[in-house]
């Protein structure tokens, strides 16, 4: 087993460059499907629904890219990855892009050789505890047993947080969200820590969601976004602007309902015209069809629609927009101009 692992690692390293050097865009077009890495199952972000189709906020990014490149949002091969396997999967070329609540950090960008194309969710690490413990602040967690997904930034943040506050804790490393949930509900750990959005998503699946509180402290910045390999900027551009198209569409009021009408002919707003391809040739520059953004918005929706449909306040997850509102509404979302 060890040997095959090594050979696997060698092959992985071997394949990495072949995949990196080749034009991923052409590969995807030739293959007819997009290989997209997602989480193994975080409700609201990426999880298969009752009929086995992947759904969620991160999944929507995959679908948007598939719609832009292949014209078909369902032409996606979803590859579930854990916190540990995701980077190897991307570096080896097993997946074309990773949309799996992954934090944009310096070392991942620079040292691990990935390109984060943007941020689709501004998050921070939080703590969830059962109400009956009577804990109201993370500073009261001295001596607690903490369930944590291994191979994530949260693991390092946690170590820093407890060290800085001079507290001790007992880490229980877990591979997946589902295992963490099992241990937490059985009381094998007092606290579950991960990104606050993930906590809300996990809590929504509990039988008695109201028995658990998410503590007010957010101990880190976790800008989550899709990423691609270094070395193929053209492909990076496609993913980056697919995401930006969703964000910009919300800003300019283009929705899946009115995009058909708005893209019939050039309207008053030149930015919208360029976005939807009724003016200029932005799509061509990307190596895509002229109506690439229209396809995204038509089939997947704009950022606001996706947010509301997957994790918004009307869903069981119930996240408010907060930092993830448009810049015009006091949030941090800001798509560069389509020009």
């Amino acid at each position: 087993m060890k040997k095959s692992l090594f050979l696997g690692a060698v092959t992985v390293a071997g394949l990495a460059a072949t995949a990196g050097a080749a034009a991923t865009l052409d590969d995807v077009k030739a293959r007819g499907t997009l290989n997209c890495g997602v989480a193994t199952g975080v409700p609201g972000f990426a999880a298969p629904n009752a009929s086995g189709e992947w759904e969620g906020f991160d999944v929507a990014v995959c679908r948007a890219v598939a719609a832009a490149v292949l014209g078909d949002p369902t032409a996606v091969e979803f590859v579930p990855t854990t916190g540990k396997t995701r980077f190897t999967a991307l570096a080896s070329g097993e997946i074309d892009m990773l949309a799996r609540n992954t934090t944009w950090t310096f070392s991942r960008d620079v040292d691990l050789k990935f390109t984060f194309v943007g941020v689709n969710y501004y998050d921070g690490q939080g703590f969830m505890v059962p109400k009956e413990l009577g804990v109201s602040s993370a500073k009261e967690l001295d001596g607690a047993t903490v369930c944590i997904q291994t191979g994530t930034t949260t693991e390092l943040n946690l170590a820093d947080f407890f060290r800085v506050n001079n507290m001790s804790y007992e880490p229980v490393p877990i591979e997946t969200n589902a295992e963490a949930q099992q241990q937490y509900l059985a009381g094998a750990c007092d606290v579950y820590t991960t990104d606050a959005s993930g906590l809300a998503a996990t809590r929504s699946t509990f039988e008695n969601a109201t028995d658990h509180v998410i503590l007010p402290e957010i101990i880190s910045k976790e800008p989550l976004g899709p990423l691609v390999r270094h070395g193929d900027s053209e492909w990076g551009d496609v993913v980056r602007w697919s995401l930006n198209a969703m964000i910009a569409a919300e800003e300019y009021g283009v929705t899946s309902a009115n995009v058909g009408e708005m893209s019939m002919e050039a309207g008053d707003n030149p930015e919208v015209n360029r976005l939807l391809g009724t003016e200029g040739n932005l799509g061509e520059m990307l190596g895509l069809e002229g109506d690439w953004a229209k396809k995204i918005i038509e089939s997947v929706g704009n950022y606001g629609e996706v947010f509301a449909g997957t994790i918004g306040e009307s869903t069981p997850i119930g996240l408010s927009r907060g930092l993830n509102a448009q810049w015009t509404e006091g949030g941090l979302l800001y798509a560069p101009p389509f020009r």
Partner: peptide, 18 residues
């Protein structure tokens, strides 16, 4: 596991582990 994941040194970590 964690070391490999945090440093991205797959080849070295697996080799050493083996």
């Amino acid at each position: 596991g964690i070391t490999m994941n945090q440093t991205g040194k797959e080849l070295e970590a697996v080799f050493l582990g083996m």
